[in-house]
Structure formats: C-alpha cells, structure tokens
C-alpha cells in the first residue's frame, strides 16, 4: 500500500497547473481531494508520474450565489458546502447529499470538483449535478468551455473532459420547490447500494417540474427524463410516484458486487427512488 514514486507539483495559478498537464500529457493527473486517486496510486492501479496539487489555486475555491445562480469552485470541499449558509438557502439538497458522503475526515478533504470530474459511478455529486442540470466549466490550453452535467459522463471514469483540461467550477440555477437525496449504504464510508436525487416544483396542486437522477446504479450517473415526465402534471399521488419509479428503474443497469446482486439493487433502487420522490413532494 505504498505508491510508486511521483513528481509533486503545487502551482499557485491555474496557468501553471495547465502548463504541467501540457508538458507531461497523460503522465500527469490533477489532485483535488485525493480520496479516489491516492488509494488507486497506493494500490498501484494508477501510475501517475506527475501529480498536480490544486490546493494553492485560490481561484478554484468558493461558493457564490448571485442572480439566482449558484457557482461553486472545483476545490470547494464537501465540508465547506455543508457549512455554507448561502448554499443552505439556495440549494439545500447539496448539504443533504454531502453529509451522506463518507465521514467527516473525508469531507474535510474531498472536493466537489474531484467528486464530479473523476467519473466514478459511486460518487454522489454527479447524479445530483444531473438532477440540478448543472454546467461544468473546463479550462484547457485553448481556453474554457462548458459542458452540461447530463452530457459529461460517457462510462466509468470516462468523461467529456480532455486530458489537458481542468474542471474549474460548477454552476446551476438555484432550484426551488421540494428536494431529497436518499441513499442506502452498508455503513459509514461506503458507496451507495442505491441513491437518488429529486428536485421538483408544484403549483396549484400539480407537479410543474421534476428531475430525478440516480447514483451507482449504472457505470455512469443516470438521469431519467421519463421519471420526471411521469410526475409532471399529476398531483404527486401514489399512482404517479409508482409510474415515476417504474420509469426510473427502467433506466438503470446495476451490476452485482459485495453489496448484492443486480436484482437486489434494482429492487432497492425502486424503494429509494420512491422514498426520494415522496420526501421531495412533501417539501414542495
């Protein structure tokens, strides 16, 4: 459990970080919180010649809520998001999900940028970002571009990010209405057996918008348009919830692991999705 030797870089500016990536290509990786990458290096499953630590780049930190839009720097930790009063007002679902990630020690180190950029299907923030219809900002040698969270994930650990790019921030429209992040896990520190993010609005007794996304139930996060559609226009009654759950479960493709076989996860997913929707409706 000792990593192979590597060069450690700790630039103070984004430009410096991009320079190291440009120089060493795929032999370089950025280090955000390190809670996925470092264990892989210790197991020698990831060989990284140059590690680019982003912690000194002040521009990558911070939470801003302005003009109905939330912007979070990639190096903002889970703990900082949980502690943010602005975020609690603008998007309480973030803290509800973040407190369910690992344990306090991990949350002091783990960042939102690392969580969404790594492409690990077990991470909680990607599904949540798809639920919120967030946008990721990627900065590379040729400038910056924006990619929707719902378009970002291709397969496990494979994303729209190019090798020379760094994910610098996420942003989304501050949500309104009811929300819930529901997660089943075996124990503290575990990834989800099944997890689901729901954000919805109601007006005049009817659901007017609904977004449903799921975690660790496929090799990418799963956003289900159909599940949202099954709720919109209904009162959120039991039949509507059931239809939404059926639609969401149809979109997942879990695989068996130590948490249990696929059929078990499919069933748990249905329960968790149903609970998330029900809780979100109760808050709308």
């Amino acid at each position: 459990m000792i990593a192979a030797a590597f060069e450690y870089h700790r630039p103070a500016h984004l430009k410096g970080a991009l320079g190291v990536l440009a120089e060493y290509g795929d032999d370089a990786r950025v280090l955000a919180g390190g809670h996925s990458l470092i264990p892989m290096m210790k197991l020698r499953m990831a060989a990284v010649g140059h590690l680019v630590d982003l912690q000194d780049i002040a521009d990558l930190k911070g939470i801003r809520v302005a003009g109905g839009r939330v912007t979070i720097g990639a190096m903002t930790t889970q703990h900082e998001m949980i502690a943010s009063a602005d975020l609690a007002r603008a998007a309480p679902i973030i803290a509800e999900a973040a407190v369910q990630i690992a344990d306090p020690q991990v949350r002091y180190m783990g960042t939102i940028g690392g969580n969404v950029a790594n492409g690990d299907p077990g991470n909680d923030m990607p599904g949540l970002m798809q639920c919120l219809n967030a946008t990721f900002t990627l900065v590379g040698p040729d400038g910056s571009r924006e990619v929707a969270a719902r378009d970002f994930y291709h397969s496990a650990y494979v994303t729209a990010r190019e090798d020379g790019e760094i994910l610098t921030q996420i942003s989304f429209a501050a949500p309104t209405g009811g929300y819930a992040y529901e997660k089943q896990k075996r124990k503290i520190g575990d990834y989800a057996t099944a997890a689901c993010a729901v954000q919805l609005t109601k007006a005049g007794g009817k659901v007017t918008s609904a977004a449903v996304a799921m975690t660790n139930l496929a090799d990418t996060p799963v956003f289900s348009d159909a599940a949202g559609a099954a709720l919109v226009g209904t009162s959120g009654d039991a039949a509507a919830v059931k239809a939404a759950v059926t639609a969401a479960v149809a979109a997942i493709s879990p695989t068996g692991d130590n948490r249990g076989p696929a059929e078990f996860k499919r069933h748990i997913a249905g329960i968790i999705i149903g609970r998330a929707i029900t809780r979100a409706l109760s808050r709308a």
Partner: peptide, 11 residues
C-alpha cells in the same frame, strides 16, 4: 445478515 441477505429472506 447484511442488507442483501435480509432482503433475500423477505424476498
């Protein structure tokens, strides 16, 4: 008796 095995009993 982890989650899966208890679930399996019920199932």
């Amino acid at each position: 008796h982890d989650h899966w095995r208890i679930w399996k009993i019920a199932n």
